[in-house]
Design a protein around this nucleic acid. Structure first.
Lengths: 353, 353
DNA sequence: GTGAAAGCGCTAACAT
DNA sequence: ATGTTAGCGCTTTCAC
């Protein structure tokens, strides 16, 4: 026996607290070779039913569980993908994560995920931690705008797909919603209902989607030959306090806006609150980017530009696994359409000032 | 040079696609020993600034990233915890996951998570996959009611905390909301507002929380000396179709219920839809278990028994890491209080039948 | 301050 | 059908 002192002649498993039986322990107990245990554990052929039975018995008796760290080290593949998003608690990301997880599961992979909290440093830490874990692929909703730190990983073959926003300063796959088109449609919709002074409440201007939606706003206004005043634009953090202040400023101006376009679901919800509190004043039209649960049950219902978070996640994950399965070619950019859903709030006419 | 053929005299890194440089490659390139690289990578003392500099240079030049699989294999700890929940897309679990992640992050651990889709088999697969990955700890929102399969893992020292529902047939830590008390309060609230025929629309009876909430319902009715008719109780899947049917049956009965108690947020939302569609009919009071976004902005506002999902997650994760840091002792059961928030829907009087 | 050797638990390649 | 050997990339131990 070339063994260490782990085992004894009695067959008693070595079970000091915190240690676990290994394949060798199972092999010893079952009276077979190490490789046979490996075959049984992995369902490989070439084991007689009788031997297999003895091994299985040893496995359950010892409470053996294959150590995937060793397996991964040997095989090189981890069967896991990383997902980095902004905030797990944001309802927009729930369906997205779920979709990614579903696809991963269909491919036998686990999901490791983390939130960047919209902090580029944290994003990078997370991504690199995932790379150290040697995830096979990465789905990233980027917080930062410089992803050159990923170059070595990409070169090493880590499949990477960006979602919701494109990568910065590197060339990588991206799956996006049509923020520009959606925003343009939203604002055009308000214009079609008679509005000329329309406010835009958006996310931080550094965020790609925020910039695109602002661009869509400008495009619609320009197409209608309408001027845009600085006071009608507010981009920044989406915390309720800031949004409230910005909305109040637009609504209390000498020439107040008669309609608001909210740049994402967090902003929309806050604006709904503001408008509800001001119900006594002249009604203000509202269109929000992103759909959200119960938007149809408010009164008026909230008109939104809906993007399909689940489809975004599914598309990204599909693309990821296509890459992992050897799908080569140039980095691709997929843009998914948005859909304007009229529910009432966006169809209000400007109040006769 | 005892090296393999991986490297050449020119110092060119071995970069066939998909392979990554190792510490040995870095060592060769920097002209130092393997252990010195390890020291630098892990910030261990005992390296001269000059040596450290050379190593750092080789690291960035080669795009080296420590392979944590090997590290984990050697160290035995993975610095990761697993989270198994029902559905990432359910808004209840967003804040919960976020809280767990936050605590994990504070302890330098990664989060690996998956959804059981309320399927016990899938739950077990997931949990065992996480154990094979040798996660240090496990936070589980159980779908099944038999967790004896976890016994070997617990014996091996995998810290495990159950959340929202207790473990079945094993003794393990659990962090729960006071489902019984919350439900009793909710129903008592409706009774206090004059209701005598109150319907309960709940989750599958096999789920611990559903059973507890039903028990709370019965307790409140009994305390008020009110009878309970079979037709007022409906437990089952929370898909909208079933809930709609069950609600309709209660509302269209010969002696219809005048109030409904919804057993969780999914059910509440569907009931709100049903009641909105029936707005023409006599108003029906409603109290829902779980708070949800915008509940206050509906009209009437939805009265709820709120549980703090974030606190649930935080408490569980705290307990988990206390165990990991050597906190021993008997398995603990923590029960967090719920809070009734009156917003209007629960204060409606019974319509004079 | 630095490095050589052993070995974590598994799988791949090759015996038998 | 089954077993033996080597080694994945790192950390640990111990020698220098």
């Amino acid at each position: 026996m070339t063994d260490t002192a782990r085992d004894t002649a009695t067959g008693t498993p070595p079970r000091r607290y915190g240690s676990r039986p290994t394949m060798k322990d199972v092999a010893t107990r079952a009276g077979v070779g190490l490789k046979t245990v490996s075959r049984v554990v992995n369902g490989e052929p070439g084991v007689t039913p009788d031997t297999e039975h003895r091994v299985q018995e040893a496995i359950t008796a010892l409470g053996f569980r294959r150590n995937d760290s060793a397996r991964i080290l040997r095989k090189g593949r981890t069967a896991s993908v990383g997902l980095v998003l902004e905030d797990l608690a944001d309802p927009f990301y729930g369906p997205l994560s779920r979709a990614v997880e579903e696809v991963a599961r269909a491919h036998g992979a686990l999901l490791i995920n983390g939130s960047s909290a919209e902090d580029p440093v944290r994003e990078q830490e997370l991504v690199l931690a995932l790379c150290a874990r040697r995830v096979d692929g990465l789905v990233i909703i980027p917080a930062g705008d410089d992803h050159r730190y990923l170059a070595p990983e990409l070169a090493a073959g880590v499949a990477t797909v960006f979602v919701d926003r494109p990568a910065g300063r590197i060339d990588a796959d991206a799956v996006l919603s049509d923020s520009f088109g959606g925003a343009r449609d939203a604002v055009a919709h308000l214009i079609a209902h008679g509005h000329r002074r329309i406010g835009f409440l958006g996310d931080q201007p550094g965020i790609h989607t925020a910039a695109e939606r602002l661009r869509g706003y400008h495009a619609a206004m320009a197409a209608a030959g309408l001027p845009v005043h600085d006071g009608w634009l507010s981009l920044g953090p989406t915390d309720p306090e800031r949004v409230r202040g910005a909305a109040a400023a637009m609504l209390d101006a000498a020439e107040p806006v008669t309609a608001l376009f909210a740049g994402n679901n967090r902003v929309t919800v806050t604006v709904v609150r503001v408008l509800t509190e001001r119900a006594a004043a002249a009604p203000v039209a509202l269109v929000g980017f992103d759909d959200f649960e119960l938007a149809d049950l408010l009164s008026p219902g909230i008109t939104v530009v809906a993007q399909d978070a689940g489809r975004l996640g599914r598309t990204a994950a599909d693309l990821l696994f296509r890459r992992l399965d050897g799908g080569g070619g140039e980095p691709r950019r997929v843009v998914l359409p948005t859909r304007l859903i009229a529910r009432g709030s966006g169809e209000l006419s400007p109040s006769p000032a």
